[in-house]
């Protein structure tokens, strides 16, 4: 919406990142990058290694090998980290006896920021009154908003959010979606992790999907969806396919006598069928369901469930990813 980006984001680059805990490999040779001005979804089932990856990117966990940099620098080497990267990792990391406002004041002091930023951010995230209560009394939604306020305190160029939609009501999720879109339009780099695909499906531009610590798929959301097409059902699919080919529309048989035409022009499909004298029983858009794709990509590989995972490994994972539950 803004014509000229007000801030320039920074590129996140993860290269061959690996972390082992004993004999357990939490993150395995992971490489991806995140571009400025776009919202990137970091997806994977619980225990896939998302949180471990983000914590390595933020200098909290030492990688076994590989690198994770922001604008070419390690997080730990940043002189003013809060103005480069803002992050919200867990919705639980507040001292229950400290007010939300004081929590932000503690962080503002550490980042060398003026205190007036604290009240600005509380306005922006819509919790100015509630933030004067002790954090122990907060609902999950409040905690998420306070975490977001903390992340944005230094007006960072990069925003990293771990499961930000957890515990938000539908209204909150819509608010978050608009908020992130607004920030990305300012040119910020935004990385959002989630184990629930539909949460981010409408929000993100790019996705990075991991399972068992390994890369499964990455790229633009539109590429994952595949080219848009139309599903048509008729009495004789082969005949309709021939008629469509004449009209320069390629098609392929789907399941249950469906025909998938590679066009979004339903009117054209209807006209062709009419000319060919074929009845139309069904005609609708075919949107590659990302959720189906997600399950397909990560199916049967969840090391947290079922076979193969020793109890020791499960413990290691639940320790690392417990915050997601």
């Amino acid at each position: 919406m803004t014509a000229a980006p007000m801030t320039t984001g920074a590129r996140i680059e993860v290269r061959d990142l690996t972390k082992t805990f004993g004999s357990f490999t939490a993150v395995d040779q992971l490489s991806f990058h995140v571009e400025p001005g776009r919202i990137t979804g970091f997806l994977g089932p619980n225990g896939a290694g998302k949180t471990t990856t983000l914590r390595m990117l933020l200098g909290l966990i030492h990688p076994t090998s590989g690198s994770a940099t922001i604008d070419g620098q390690n997080y730990r080497d940043l002189d003013h980290p809060s103005s480069v990267v803002g992050s919200a990792l867990e919705a639980t990391n507040f001292h229950p006896g400290r007010t939300g406002r004081d929590h932000l004041r503690v962080l503002a002091a550490a980042g060398g920021l003026r205190d007036s930023r604290v009240d600005e951010l509380l306005e922006l995230t819509g919790i100015p009154a509630a933030a004067r209560k002790r954090a122990g009394e907060y609902s999950m939604g409040m905690r998420q908003r306070l975490g977001l306020a903390a992340a944005l305190l230094g007006d960072p160029r990069v925003l990293i959010l771990d499961e930000p939609a957890n515990g938000l009501d539908p209204e909150g999720i819509r608010w978050l979606r608009g908020f992130l879109r607004h920030l990305s339009n300012e040119g910020k780099t935004i990385l959002v992790s989630s184990h629930l695909l539909q949460e981010v499906e409408a929000t993100v531009d790019d996705v990075v999907i991991i399972a068992n610590g390994r890369m499964v798929k990455s790229g633009a959301m539109s590429d994952l969806h595949g080219s848009p097409s139309t599903i048509v059902r008729t009495s004789n699919p082969d005949q309709l396919a021939g008629a469509l080919r004449v009209a320069d529309v390629m098609s392929s048989p789907g399941t249950d006598g469906e025909l998938i035409a590679e066009t979004t022009d339903k009117r054209l499909v209807g006209d062709v069928a009419l000319r060919a004298g074929l009845p139309i029983w069904e005609l609708r858009d075919r949107k590659a369901d990302l959720e189906a794709l997600f399950f397909e990509l990560t199916e049967g590989t969840n090391r947290n469930l079922g076979d193969g995972a020793s109890p020791v490994e499960s413990d290691a994972i639940s320790g690392l990813e417990g915050a997601n539950e």
């Binding site: 992050s87 990792l89 639980t92 507040f94």
Partner: peptide
């Protein structure tokens, strides 16, 4: 209370 995360994020 896991605030060590926030502390080390502000002062890495």
């Amino acid at each position: 209370h896991k605030t060590i995360t926030a502390t080390l994020l502000s002062t890495p």
